[in-house]
Design a protein around this nucleic acid. Structure first.
Ligand code: MN
Ligand code: MN
Ligand code: MN
Ligand code: MN
Lengths: 219, 219
DNA sequence: TTAATTTTTTAGATTTGTCTAAATTTTATT
DNA sequence: AATAAAATTTAGACAAATCTAAAAAATTAA
């Protein structure tokens, strides 16, 4: 079956929300998609009819197995295109999300598999998120939140919690990006800010909000 | 101003038709887009309002200067993507058109200019059609129709008259593609078929329709 | 130069995706 | 448990793009 761009955007958004939340709510999804709750309800009915969604009125919802499969296909396309934009076209890692938001809806299966081969089957996108393979499998992320990293343990930044331009702008300003090695030097309990150090730079403080948006792997 | 995918498809189709025809008619455009005349009329009104079209009821129409500029931008994207698909992703030259039909609607200007650079500023797409540069300029095609090529003059195939899968399938079957050197050996006036020869292959006959779909450059 | 034919436009519906405002259901608070 | 607040759904409207059928205009042919 083929899906419209609007349907695909809903499916993908539900997929991401249920990763975090388990059950997804109407308002949550409306906020995620910058639309209104009434519009969401309409689309939920349609996706339910198409058997992509387990949904009962007022009860919240989750994707069906079939819906999850569709979602993984869209996520695969999104992340492969992001990788292409950064690795081949020299985009900054903080400017690819909006373009990939469009490219992810190109329908050719052959295109995406050939792109995957051309890129040499990358496992992670520029934000550190795993890229599903053509059957929907992807590497698990066993990453810990920077806020939970013990003091003085070097760790590598491997992913970010959101793709908002605001976040990515701040990260760029602080020279924080995928692959950078960080160490937590102090934790301030008053506001939960932390002092971190990155290679050849004096330590600096980041806010709780920023630390929670960063995931690291101990090395 | 931003345009919908439907609007862009109309603009591009009008551009191609007026290249051949001068003035374009409602039915012509409906046929080109596989839609109905009534739908075309509706869209013409909209494009006129947006000043992309010189159009008076019942009089036929052409793009305005602004409309032509938009059209060239879409053509540029279409042909650059086709080049990418063939040169980088190893698509056959006969299978790229449908995918490019979608990719041409991705809106990022930065994307297309970076793609152009990545491809090293190609001048022609895989079908031999010139690719407009970022200001809309492109190489002129000074090609002659294969049906008009004099006997025994070697010439190089440089473009095809349409991208229909039917045509491209036939060309592939006959080993005819961009860059192939052909010579016309005989012309049969009964049905206007011609006998041609290509490198290391015995001569064979092609129909008038096929010969008219091929453009060559004398060498 | 009428009449027939073709082309084009209009009128009225339909589908998709969206919205606001009102109604309903659920959840939280007294 | 009753009431207030919040979340969700329904009702009704709208814009975009399409269609069919009918009307109007232009073209062609008698
Ligand atoms: Mn998207
Ligand atoms: Mn990403
Ligand atoms: Mn198109
Ligand atoms: Mn082409």
């Amino acid at each position: 079956m083929k899906f419209s761009i609007a349907e695909e955007n809903y499916i993908k958004a539900i997929y991401h929300l249920q990763q975090a939340d388990g059950n997804v709510t109407t308002n949550e999804l409306a906020a995620e998609l910058n639309t209104k709750a009434a519009s969401v309800t309409d689309m939920l009915k349609k996706l339910k009819t198409k058997k992509l969604l387990n949904y009962e009125k007022y009860q919240g919802f989750r994707l069906s197995a079939e819906g999850r499969k569709i979602a993984l296909g869209i996520v695969r396309k999104h992340r492969l295109w992001e990788y292409f934009l950064v690795e081949k076209l020299q985009f900054g890692w903080d400017e690819v999300h909006a373009v990939a938001e469009e490219l992810e809806h190109i329908t050719s299966k052959k295109l995406i598999d050939k792109l995957d081969a051309f890129l040499d089957y990358p496992k992670f996108d520029p934000h550190g998120d795993p890229i599903p393979d053509s059957s929907g499998r992807m590497a698990a992320q066993k990453h810990i939140n920077l806020i939970d990293l013990p003091l003085n343990e070097p760790a590598e930044i491997v992913s970010v919690g959101s793709q908002s331009t605001e976040l990515l702008e701040l990260l760029r300003h602080k020279n924080l990006s995928m692959g950078v090695i960080v160490e937590v030097k102090r934790k301030f309990s008053f506001d939960h800010s932390i002092e971190i150090k990155i290679k050849s730079q004096s330590p600096f403080i980041i806010s709780q909000q920023l630390a929670q948006a960063l995931f690291v792997k101990k090395i």
